[in-house]
Structure formats: structure tokens, C-alpha cells
């Protein structure tokens, strides 16, 4: 009977450990990748808007050259602030599960005006409207495609929203399970100790960190452009950093618990 009780106790502790480990991972994800403000902060930190502006400007120039137009038709079409506004709005839409759309009306009007000005300047009349309209269409496609990166972005949005909701449900479920099991442990065994889950979680994170760092060279990540590469690296590093902080808090709490336990034992002894 006693053996059965001990087995149940350690089984409960194992489940509590898995719950605590999962909660920490989900919590750090909610602080980073699943947090809209964190993502927008990363875009600022990695100078994403400036890099995107330069890329779009470069693409515009590459497209204008064979068209017969002068490079000047790309002047003053948009600013970095315009890009920032569009991206922030669409990041917000992404996290809310709304459709990603790029409003090109402003840039289209400016392009029309620049083309008209150029044609008046060199004194030419446009006879092939189809060619010019196709040019404007392709020009705006360059702008849109650079901002949204992939035409699958709305499909990705649906998947992301689905998993985001799932993670939220999972977090609440695991937290509830953790609390309930802690109460059951207290009732059945007259003690509530989270030392084993805390120590096990810390050890698991140390092992996971060593495993990940040995398999992936995070600092060499290169994807799309410098800013996006830096965002990915920052997400990795920030997740590791937050987990490390939680582990340190765990160690401090365990040490505090130990000190309080020793002090209370000494006081009992004196009494």
C-alpha cells in the first residue's frame, strides 16, 4: 500500500514536471513570436523598413531601365514611413486573423502623375495605352510582392491564427491541470512541493539548450535579407534568454525555500 502511494506521488510529480516544462515554453512563445508588439519591436530594432525601402527602390530601378522611362518616375512614390504604416497595419491584421491587403492607391496616383510629367517634359504622346497600363500593373506588383514577401501570406495567416488559438487553449488547460494536480498532491500527501518539477525543468532546459546549440548555428542564419535574418536570430536568442531568466528565478525560489525551511527547523528546535 505504501509502495502504491509512493508510486502515485512520483507519477503526479512527473506529470507536474511535464506541465511546468510545457508552461514555460508556451509562456516564452507568448512573450515572443505570438506577441504582436514584440514582432513590431523587432522590425524597428533590425531596421527592416529601411532595408525594405532600399530593396523596393532597387527593384523599381531594375524594372524602369528596360521600359524606356527615365529613372525619375520612381521619385517620391513612397517613403519609409509609408512602408512602416502599411506593415504595422498588416502585422496587426495578421495577428488578428484578418486578411492581408496592401493599398496601392496612393502610390498609383503618384506614379500616374510622374509618368505624365515625364511625358510632358520630353514632349511625347502615349499611343499604346495597353503597354503603359501593363507597365503600371507590373510596377505596383513589384511593390506589393516585396512587402508581403509571399502570395501565400493569407494561407499562412489562417494557419497561424489556428495555432495561436490552439496554443492559448493549451496554455490555459495545462495551467489548470498543473493547479489541480498540485492541490491533489497537497490533499493526498499533506505536502506541496514543486522542487522536483522545478529542478527537472531546469535540467531539461539545460539539456535542450546544449542540444540545440550543438545542432544549429544560430548566428549564421541567413534568410531573405539581413533584417529578416536578424529577426529570426533575435527570436531564437530571446526565447533562450527568457527561459534562462525563468530557470534563474526557479533556482532562487528553491534556495529561498531551502533557507526558510532550515530557519523554521532551527526555530522549532529552539522551542
Amino acid at each position: 500500500m505504501k509502495n502504491k502511494k509512493v508510486l502515485i506521488y512520483y507519477l503526479l510529480e512527473l506529470v507536474l514536471t511535464i506541465c511546468l516544462f510545457s508552461l514555460i515554453i508556451l509562456f516564452t512563445l507568448k512573450l515572443t513570436v505570438l506577441n504582436k508588439n514584440y514582432f513590431i519591436k523587432q522590425l524597428d530594432k533590425t531596421n527592416y523598413y529601411h532595408e525594405l525601402y532600399t530593396e523596393i527602390d532597387n527593384d523599381f530601378e531594375n524594372y524602369i531601365r528596360p521600359s524606356g522611362f527615365d529613372i525619375s518616375i520612381k521619385n517620391n512614390l513612397f517613403t519609409e514611413d509609408d512602408l512602416k504604416e502599411i506593415i504595422n497595419k498588416n502585422v496587426d491584421n495578421f495577428y488578428k486573423g484578418k486578411k492581408i491587403e496592401i493599398d496601392t492607391s496612393k502610390i498609383k496616383d503618384k506614379l500616374n502623375s510622374n509618368i505624365e510629367e515625364y511625358c510632358n517634359k520630353i514632349n511625347i504622346t502615349i499611343t499604346d495605352d495597353d503597354s503603359i497600363n501593363l507597365f503600371k500593373e507590373e510596377f505596383l506588383k513589384i511593390y506589393t510582392n516585396r512587402i508581403i514577401i509571399s502570395d501565400k501570406i493569407n494561407d499562412l495567416n489562417k494557419t497561424f491564427t489556428k495555432y495561436n488559438k490552439l496554443i492559448n487553449i493549451l496554455f490555459i488547460s495545462i495551467l489548470s491541470l498543473f493547479v489541480i494536480l498540485s492541490i491533489i498532491t497537497r490533499i493526498l500527501f499533506k505536502k506541496i512541493t514543486l522542487s522536483i518539477p522545478v529542478i527537472t525543468s531546469i535540467l531539461l532546459f539545460i539539456v535542450s539548450y546544449i542540444f540545440i546549440v550543438s545542432k544549429i548555428n544560430i548566428s549564421s542564419i541567413k534568410f531573405w535579407n539581413t533584417s529578416v535574418s536578424n529577426i529570426i536570430k533575435n527570436i531564437f536568442n530571446d526565447n533562450i534568454k527568457y527561459i534562462l531568466y525563468i530557470c534563474i528565478i526557479g533556482i532562487i525560489l528553491e534556495l529561498l525555500k531551502l533557507i526558510i525551511f532550515i530557519i523554521s527547523r532551527r526555530r522549532k528546535k529552539r522551542v
Binding site: Y10, E13, L14, T17, I18, F21, T193, S195, I196, I199, T200, L203, L204, V207, L258, F261, I262, R265, K269
Partner: peptide, 25 residues
């Protein structure tokens, strides 16, 4: 005796933790 009991409990928790880490891995 108290010191021994405390040390015994801490050692037990660390050993159990290592055991759990092994199972999970």
C-alpha cells in the same frame, strides 16, 4: 539529525529529477 534529514531530502529530490530527465529524454 535535522541536517542529515534535510540533506537526504535534497539529495532525493535531485536524484528523482535526474531520473525524470532521463525518462523524458
Amino acid at each position: 539529525k535535522n541536517k542529515r534529514n534535510i540533506l537526504k531530502e535534497i539529495t532525493e529530490q535531485i536524484v528523482i529529477s535526474f531520473f525524470f530527465v532521463s525518462i523524458i529524454i
